[in-house]
Design a protein around this nucleic acid. Structure first.
Lengths: 101, 101
DNA sequence: TCATTTCGTAAGTCATAGCTTACTAATAAA
DNA sequence: TTTATTAGTAAGCTATGACTTACGAAATGA
C-alpha cells in the first residue's frame, strides 16, 4: 500500500502492461494473460503484486476473478508526481531569482 | 529516455530517495551521498541510471558535478499518470452507465 | 457425483540489479 | 609539479525478482 510497493509494482514491464490493460475496465485473468509473453500463473503472480500494492482490486464472478484498477491507489501515484512537479518547478523559479539577485 | 527506463529508475528505493533529494535544487554527488545508506560510488551509479532515463541532468562546476532534476523527464511521468487517471475514471463512469441500462 | 473451467500456490531455476572495494581521471590549490 | 578533492569506472559478490511446471481448490454443468 506504500509508494514503495507501488513503484516496485510498476517497474516490471510485463506487470505494467497487465496493469495498463485494465485502463478500459475490469478483465479476467485469462483475458489479461492473452498477448502477454508469459504464462498464466505468472500473470496471477503479477496481479498479486499489484493488488498488494493497492493498484488493482479483485471481485469474484463465478469461476472467474475480475480485476480492475484501484482508483485510490492510482490517484496516489498521480498526486505524487503532481506534487513533485510543482515543487521542482518552484525550486527552479527560485534558482532563477537568486541568480538575478 | 523511455517510460521503461523511467519506471525502472524510480523503482529502487535508495535511487528514488536520491532523486527526491533534488526536489529543492541542484546538489553535488558528495552531498547526495550523505544520509544515504550506501557508498558514494553506488550513488554515482544510481545517478547514471537516472540520467540515462532522462530524469536528471548534470553540469560541471569545478571538481564537482551538480545534478538537478530534468523537468521534461519528470513532466513525462506526471503526464503518464494524469492521462491514466483520466482514462480510468472515464471507463469507470461508462461502466456505471451501462449497468444502469 | 464427476468432469471442466478458471485460477491461485508451491517449488525450483536463472539472470540481473544493487552493492562493495580498488582504481583511474580531472580539476584546484599549495 | 605534487597533493587533495571530487567523482566516474571496473570487477566481482550476493540476494532476489521474474519466470517455469506441477499441483490444489473452488465454482459450474452434465
Amino acid at each position: 500500500m506504500t509508494y514503495e510497493m507501488k513503484f516496485d509494482a510498476l517497474s516490471c514491464p510485463t506487470r505494467r502492461s497487465v496493469f495498463e490493460k485494465l485502463r478500459g475496465g475490469a478483465l479476467s485473468v485469462g483475458v489479461l494473460a492473452e498477448g502477454v509473453p508469459v504464462s498464466r500463473p505468472a500473470v496471477s503472480q503479477h496481479l498479486k503484486v499489484l493488488k498488494d500494492a493497492g493498484l488493482v482490486s479483485e471481485r469474484r464472478d463465478g469461476v472467474r476473478r475480475l480485476y480492475s484498477i484501484d482508483r485510490a491507489g492510482l490517484e496516489e501515484m498521480r498526486d505524487y508526481f503532481d506534487r513533485f512537479w510543482d515543487e521542482a518547478l518552484d525550486a527552479y523559479k527560485r534558482s532563477l531569482e537568486t541568480r538575478d539577485a
